[in-house]
Simulated assay, not measured.
Amino acid sequence: MSDHSPALELDGVGKAFGGTPVLDGVSLRLGAGEVVSIVGPSGSGKSTLLSLLTGALAADEGRIRAGGAPVSRDNRPFAFMPQRDVLLPWRRVIDNAAVGLEVAGVRRAEARRRVSRLLPAFGLEGTERLYPRQLSGGMRQRVSFVRAVVQERPLLLLDEPFGALDAMTREELQRWLLDVWAVHRWSVLLITHDIREAIRLSDRVLVFSPRPGRVVGEVAVPRVIPRGDGFVLRPEVPVIEDRVRRLLARGPV
Protein backbone atom coordinates (compact mmCIF):
# COMPACT_ATOMS: atom_id res chain seq x y z
CA MET A 1 0.00 0.00 0.00
CA SER A 2 1.33 3.44 -0.90
CA ASP A 3 1.74 5.89 1.96
CA HIS A 4 -0.56 8.22 0.02
CA SER A 5 -3.26 5.68 -0.82
CA PRO A 6 -6.24 5.35 1.50
CA ALA A 7 -6.79 1.95 3.03
CA LEU A 8 -10.28 2.03 1.57
CA GLU A 9 -12.07 4.32 -0.86
CA LEU A 10 -15.69 4.17 -2.06
CA ASP A 11 -16.89 6.48 -4.79
CA GLY A 12 -20.61 6.68 -5.70
CA VAL A 13 -21.39 3.11 -4.63
CA GLY A 14 -25.01 2.01 -5.11
CA LYS A 15 -27.00 -1.15 -4.51
CA ALA A 16 -30.66 -2.01 -5.05
CA PHE A 17 -32.81 -5.06 -4.37
CA GLY A 18 -35.79 -5.71 -6.61
CA GLY A 19 -35.58 -2.19 -7.96
CA THR A 20 -35.57 -0.64 -4.47
CA PRO A 21 -32.35 1.28 -3.75
CA VAL A 22 -30.64 0.40 -0.48
CA LEU A 23 -27.39 2.32 -0.99
CA ASP A 24 -27.35 5.49 -3.08
CA GLY A 25 -24.06 7.08 -4.09
CA VAL A 26 -22.03 6.18 -1.00
CA SER A 27 -18.59 7.79 -0.98
CA LEU A 28 -16.06 7.55 1.82
CA ARG A 29 -12.34 7.28 2.54
CA LEU A 30 -10.55 5.39 5.29
CA GLY A 31 -6.93 6.28 5.91
CA ALA A 32 -4.19 3.87 6.93
CA GLY A 33 -4.37 3.26 10.67
CA GLU A 34 -7.65 5.17 10.96
CA VAL A 35 -10.78 3.98 12.77
CA VAL A 36 -14.02 5.15 11.14
CA SER A 37 -17.49 4.32 12.43
CA ILE A 38 -20.75 4.32 10.52
CA VAL A 39 -23.95 5.00 12.45
CA GLY A 40 -27.45 5.12 11.06
CA PRO A 41 -30.96 3.81 11.57
CA SER A 42 -31.91 0.21 10.87
CA GLY A 43 -32.38 -0.36 7.16
CA SER A 44 -29.91 2.33 6.10
CA GLY A 45 -27.71 -0.18 4.29
CA LYS A 46 -24.80 -0.38 6.73
CA SER A 47 -24.57 -4.18 6.71
CA THR A 48 -25.21 -4.22 2.95
CA LEU A 49 -22.13 -2.04 2.57
CA LEU A 50 -20.03 -4.60 4.45
CA SER A 51 -21.45 -7.36 2.23
CA LEU A 52 -20.20 -5.45 -0.81
CA LEU A 53 -16.73 -5.21 0.71
CA THR A 54 -16.52 -8.88 1.68
CA GLY A 55 -17.70 -9.98 -1.76
CA ALA A 56 -20.99 -11.49 -0.55
CA LEU A 57 -22.77 -8.98 -2.81
CA ALA A 58 -21.78 -7.02 -5.91
CA ALA A 59 -22.32 -3.28 -6.22
CA ASP A 60 -24.65 -2.06 -8.96
CA GLU A 61 -22.65 1.10 -9.51
CA GLY A 62 -19.69 3.01 -8.23
CA ARG A 63 -16.08 2.18 -7.44
CA ILE A 64 -14.46 0.44 -4.48
CA ARG A 65 -10.68 0.58 -4.06
CA ALA A 66 -8.39 -0.76 -1.34
CA GLY A 67 -4.78 0.36 -1.05
CA GLY A 68 -5.17 2.27 -4.30
CA ALA A 69 -6.26 -0.77 -6.35
CA PRO A 70 -9.77 -1.89 -7.36
CA VAL A 71 -11.29 -4.43 -4.99
CA SER A 72 -11.47 -7.83 -6.66
CA ARG A 73 -11.09 -11.51 -5.85
CA ASP A 74 -7.31 -10.99 -5.85
CA ASN A 75 -7.43 -7.70 -3.93
CA ARG A 76 -9.81 -7.98 -0.99
CA PRO A 77 -7.59 -7.17 2.00
CA PHE A 78 -10.35 -7.31 4.60
CA ALA A 79 -10.83 -9.37 7.75
CA PHE A 80 -14.49 -9.46 8.78
CA MET A 81 -15.95 -9.83 12.27
CA PRO A 82 -19.75 -10.24 12.28
CA GLN A 83 -22.15 -9.10 14.98
CA ARG A 84 -22.45 -12.56 16.51
CA ASP A 85 -19.44 -14.75 17.02
CA VAL A 86 -20.82 -17.71 14.98
CA LEU A 87 -18.29 -20.04 16.59
CA LEU A 88 -18.61 -23.68 15.61
CA PRO A 89 -19.84 -25.52 18.73
CA TRP A 90 -17.95 -28.74 17.92
CA ARG A 91 -14.56 -27.00 17.58
CA ARG A 92 -12.34 -25.93 20.44
CA VAL A 93 -11.13 -22.34 20.81
CA ILE A 94 -7.86 -22.88 18.96
CA ASP A 95 -9.61 -24.55 16.02
CA ASN A 96 -12.42 -21.98 15.88
CA ALA A 97 -9.85 -19.19 15.71
CA ALA A 98 -7.91 -21.05 13.02
CA VAL A 99 -10.81 -21.85 10.73
CA GLY A 100 -10.32 -18.80 8.48
CA LEU A 101 -6.71 -19.72 7.86
CA GLU A 102 -7.65 -23.31 7.10
CA VAL A 103 -10.26 -22.18 4.57
CA ALA A 104 -7.53 -20.06 2.96
CA GLY A 105 -5.40 -23.19 2.53
CA VAL A 106 -3.08 -22.95 5.53
CA ARG A 107 -2.23 -26.35 7.01
CA ARG A 108 -3.96 -27.07 10.31
CA ALA A 109 -0.74 -27.29 12.34
CA GLU A 110 0.52 -23.98 10.98
CA ALA A 111 -2.87 -22.32 11.52
CA ARG A 112 -2.88 -23.49 15.14
CA ARG A 113 0.66 -22.18 15.62
CA ARG A 114 -0.31 -18.72 14.38
CA VAL A 115 -3.40 -18.65 16.60
CA SER A 116 -1.49 -19.82 19.68
CA ARG A 117 0.94 -16.95 19.25
CA LEU A 118 -1.92 -14.42 19.51
CA LEU A 119 -4.01 -15.88 22.33
CA PRO A 120 -2.10 -14.33 25.28
CA ALA A 121 -2.39 -10.79 23.87
CA PHE A 122 -6.15 -11.28 23.50
CA GLY A 123 -6.66 -12.53 27.03
CA LEU A 124 -7.27 -16.11 25.88
CA GLU A 125 -4.22 -17.94 27.18
CA GLY A 126 -5.25 -21.27 28.68
CA THR A 127 -8.53 -21.48 26.74
CA GLU A 128 -7.13 -23.38 23.75
CA ARG A 129 -9.01 -26.61 24.44
CA LEU A 130 -12.28 -25.13 25.65
CA TYR A 131 -15.49 -25.32 23.62
CA PRO A 132 -17.64 -22.24 22.92
CA ARG A 133 -20.28 -23.37 25.45
CA GLN A 134 -17.62 -23.05 28.16
CA LEU A 135 -16.93 -19.38 27.41
CA SER A 136 -18.63 -16.14 28.42
CA GLY A 137 -20.07 -13.88 25.73
CA GLY A 138 -17.09 -11.57 25.98
CA MET A 139 -14.61 -14.41 25.63
CA ARG A 140 -16.47 -15.73 22.59
CA GLN A 141 -16.17 -12.31 20.96
CA ARG A 142 -12.44 -12.31 21.65
CA VAL A 143 -12.10 -15.66 19.90
CA SER A 144 -14.04 -14.23 16.96
CA PHE A 145 -11.69 -11.26 16.89
CA VAL A 146 -8.61 -13.50 16.89
CA ARG A 147 -10.13 -15.45 13.99
CA ALA A 148 -10.34 -12.18 12.05
CA VAL A 149 -6.96 -10.65 12.82
CA VAL A 150 -4.88 -13.85 12.56
CA GLN A 151 -5.46 -13.63 8.81
CA GLU A 152 -3.14 -10.59 8.88
CA ARG A 153 -5.24 -8.41 6.63
CA PRO A 154 -4.56 -4.65 6.81
CA LEU A 155 -8.21 -3.65 7.16
CA LEU A 156 -10.79 -4.84 9.69
CA LEU A 157 -14.54 -4.74 9.06
CA LEU A 158 -16.49 -4.89 12.33
CA ASP A 159 -20.28 -5.28 12.18
CA GLU A 160 -21.80 -4.41 15.58
CA PRO A 161 -19.12 -6.53 17.31
CA PHE A 162 -20.36 -5.79 20.84
CA GLY A 163 -24.05 -5.20 20.17
CA ALA A 164 -25.22 -8.51 21.68
CA LEU A 165 -23.32 -8.07 24.97
CA ASP A 166 -24.45 -6.59 28.27
CA ALA A 167 -23.34 -3.04 29.09
CA MET A 168 -20.47 -3.96 31.42
CA THR A 169 -19.00 -6.55 29.06
CA ARG A 170 -19.39 -4.16 26.14
CA GLU A 171 -17.40 -1.46 27.97
CA GLU A 172 -14.74 -3.99 28.90
CA LEU A 173 -14.32 -5.11 25.28
CA GLN A 174 -14.28 -1.53 24.01
CA ARG A 175 -11.39 -0.87 26.38
CA TRP A 176 -9.67 -4.05 25.26
CA LEU A 177 -10.14 -3.23 21.56
CA LEU A 178 -8.55 0.19 22.07
CA ASP A 179 -5.57 -1.40 23.80
CA VAL A 180 -5.09 -3.94 21.01
CA TRP A 181 -5.50 -1.29 18.30
CA ALA A 182 -2.87 0.92 19.98
CA VAL A 183 -0.33 -1.88 19.38
CA HIS A 184 -1.29 -2.97 15.86
CA ARG A 185 -2.82 0.23 14.36
CA TRP A 186 -5.06 -1.55 11.88
CA SER A 187 -7.40 0.40 9.64
CA VAL A 188 -10.90 -0.27 10.95
CA LEU A 189 -14.39 0.29 9.56
CA LEU A 190 -16.89 -0.16 12.39
CA ILE A 191 -20.67 -0.46 12.06
CA THR A 192 -22.53 0.41 15.25
CA HIS A 193 -25.87 1.69 16.55
CA ASP A 194 -24.20 3.01 19.72
CA ILE A 195 -23.21 6.67 19.26
CA ARG A 196 -21.07 6.74 22.41
CA GLU A 197 -19.27 3.60 21.23
CA ALA A 198 -18.61 5.21 17.86
CA ILE A 199 -17.20 8.32 19.52
CA ARG A 200 -15.03 6.38 21.95
CA LEU A 201 -13.50 4.08 19.34
CA SER A 202 -13.25 6.26 16.24
CA ASP A 203 -11.33 9.07 14.61
CA ARG A 204 -14.40 9.98 12.56
CA VAL A 205 -18.08 9.11 12.72
CA LEU A 206 -19.98 8.87 9.41
CA VAL A 207 -23.76 9.26 9.57
CA PHE A 208 -26.00 7.32 7.18
CA SER A 209 -29.49 8.42 6.18
CA PRO A 210 -32.48 6.05 6.17
CA ARG A 211 -33.07 3.99 3.04
CA PRO A 212 -31.66 4.60 0.58
CA GLY A 213 -28.49 4.87 2.63
CA ARG A 214 -26.04 7.63 1.89
CA VAL A 215 -23.50 9.59 3.91
CA VAL A 216 -25.24 12.75 5.16
CA GLY A 217 -22.31 14.01 7.20
CA GLU A 218 -19.30 13.19 9.30
CA VAL A 219 -18.04 14.27 12.70
CA ALA A 220 -14.37 14.24 13.70
CA VAL A 221 -13.32 13.00 17.14
CA PRO A 222 -10.19 14.34 18.91
CA ARG A 223 -7.38 11.79 18.71
CA VAL A 224 -6.81 11.27 22.41
CA ILE A 225 -4.81 8.11 23.14
CA PRO A 226 -5.36 6.15 25.22
CA ARG A 227 -9.11 6.66 25.29
CA GLY A 228 -9.68 5.29 28.74
CA ASP A 229 -12.90 5.07 30.67
CA GLY A 230 -12.75 8.79 31.43
CA PHE A 231 -12.75 9.80 27.76
CA VAL A 232 -16.56 9.92 27.48
CA LEU A 233 -16.58 12.38 30.42
CA ARG A 234 -14.51 14.93 28.55
CA PRO A 235 -16.49 18.15 27.93
CA GLU A 236 -16.24 17.89 24.14
CA VAL A 237 -17.88 14.45 23.97
CA PRO A 238 -21.49 15.64 24.55
CA VAL A 239 -20.92 18.28 21.85
CA ILE A 240 -19.74 15.63 19.40
CA GLU A 241 -22.68 13.39 20.33
CA ASP A 242 -25.11 16.25 19.71
CA ARG A 243 -23.63 16.82 16.24
CA VAL A 244 -24.10 13.15 15.37
CA ARG A 245 -27.69 13.15 16.64
CA ARG A 246 -28.51 16.28 14.64
CA LEU A 247 -27.21 14.62 11.49
CA LEU A 248 -29.26 11.49 12.22
CA ALA A 249 -32.38 13.63 12.70
CA ARG A 250 -31.80 15.48 9.45
CA GLY A 251 -32.30 12.38 7.29
CA PRO A 252 -31.75 12.38 3.50
CA VAL A 253 -30.47 15.58 1.96
Results as ranks from 00 to 15, higher is better:
residue 192 T to E: 03
residue 176 W to D: 13
residue 199 I to W: 06
residue 195 I to H: 08
residue 185 R to S: 08
residue 115 V to D: 00
residue 205 V to L: 07
residue 116 S to A: 15
residue 178 L to N: 04
residue 129 R to G: 15
residue 159 D to G: 04
residue 198 A to C: 08
residue 144 S to Q: 08
residue 147 R to A: 01
residue 163 G to W: 07
residue 134 Q to G: 13
residue 206 L to W: 06
residue 180 V to P: 03
residue 205 V to D: 01
residue 199 I to G: 08
residue 200 R to S: 13
residue 159 D to C: 10
residue 187 S to R: 05
residue 170 R to E: 00
residue 156 L to Q: 04
residue 184 H to W: 12
residue 131 Y to L: 13
residue 143 V to E: 00
residue 146 V to I: 09
residue 137 G to Y: 04
residue 124 L to N: 06
residue 183 V to M: 13
residue 121 A to Y: 09
residue 140 R to T: 07
residue 190 L to C: 03
residue 147 R to P: 02
residue 140 R to D: 02
residue 184 H to F: 13
residue 140 R to V: 05
residue 168 M to Q: 13
residue 188 V to T: 06
residue 182 A to I: 08
residue 118 L to Y: 08
residue 202 S to F: 01
residue 173 L to I: 03
residue 208 F to S: 01
residue 127 T to L: 15
residue 135 L to N: 06
residue 116 S to Y: 03
residue 138 G to W: 10
residue 208 F to N: 02
residue 132 P to W: 00
residue 183 V to W: 12
residue 141 Q to I: 02
residue 130 L to C: 14
residue 128 E to P: 09
residue 150 V to S: 10
residue 117 R to K: 13
residue 122 F to C: 09
residue 134 Q to A: 13
residue 161 P to S: 14
residue 157 L to H: 04
residue 151 Q to H: 12
residue 180 V to K: 08
residue 191 I to F: 02
residue 182 A to N: 14
residue 177 L to S: 02
residue 132 P to R: 02
residue 162 F to S: 00
residue 152 E to G: 12
residue 202 S to Y: 02
residue 173 L to E: 00
residue 173 L to R: 01
residue 130 L to M: 14
residue 149 V to D: 05
residue 116 S to K: 12
residue 159 D to A: 10
residue 121 A to V: 02
residue 135 L to D: 03
residue 114 R to N: 10
residue 117 R to T: 12
residue 190 L to T: 04
residue 192 T to N: 09
residue 176 W to A: 06
residue 126 G to V: 11
residue 155 L to E: 05
residue 158 L to A: 06
residue 190 L to E: 03
residue 208 F to Q: 01
residue 158 L to I: 13
residue 191 I to G: 00
residue 131 Y to H: 13
residue 163 G to T: 10
residue 170 R to V: 00
residue 125 E to G: 13
residue 209 S to A: 15
residue 137 G to S: 07
residue 204 R to V: 03
residue 207 V to M: 07
residue 134 Q to E: 15
residue 160 E to S: 10
residue 148 A to Y: 05
residue 171 E to K: 00
residue 188 V to A: 02
residue 203 D to W: 09
residue 203 D to S: 11
residue 164 A to M: 08
residue 160 E to A: 13
residue 190 L to P: 01
residue 191 I to D: 00
residue 132 P to A: 02
residue 119 L to W: 05
residue 112 R to T: 05
residue 150 V to M: 10
residue 168 M to H: 11
residue 180 V to M: 10
residue 189 L to P: 02
residue 161 P to L: 06
residue 114 R to H: 11
residue 180 V to N: 01
residue 202 S to I: 03
residue 184 H to N: 14
residue 163 G to I: 12
residue 209 S to L: 12
residue 146 V to C: 11
residue 141 Q to P: 01
residue 169 T to H: 11
residue 209 S to R: 11
residue 178 L to P: 03
residue 203 D to A: 07
residue 157 L to N: 06
residue 173 L to V: 01
residue 172 E to N: 13
residue 204 R to K: 14
residue 187 S to Q: 07
residue 117 R to P: 03
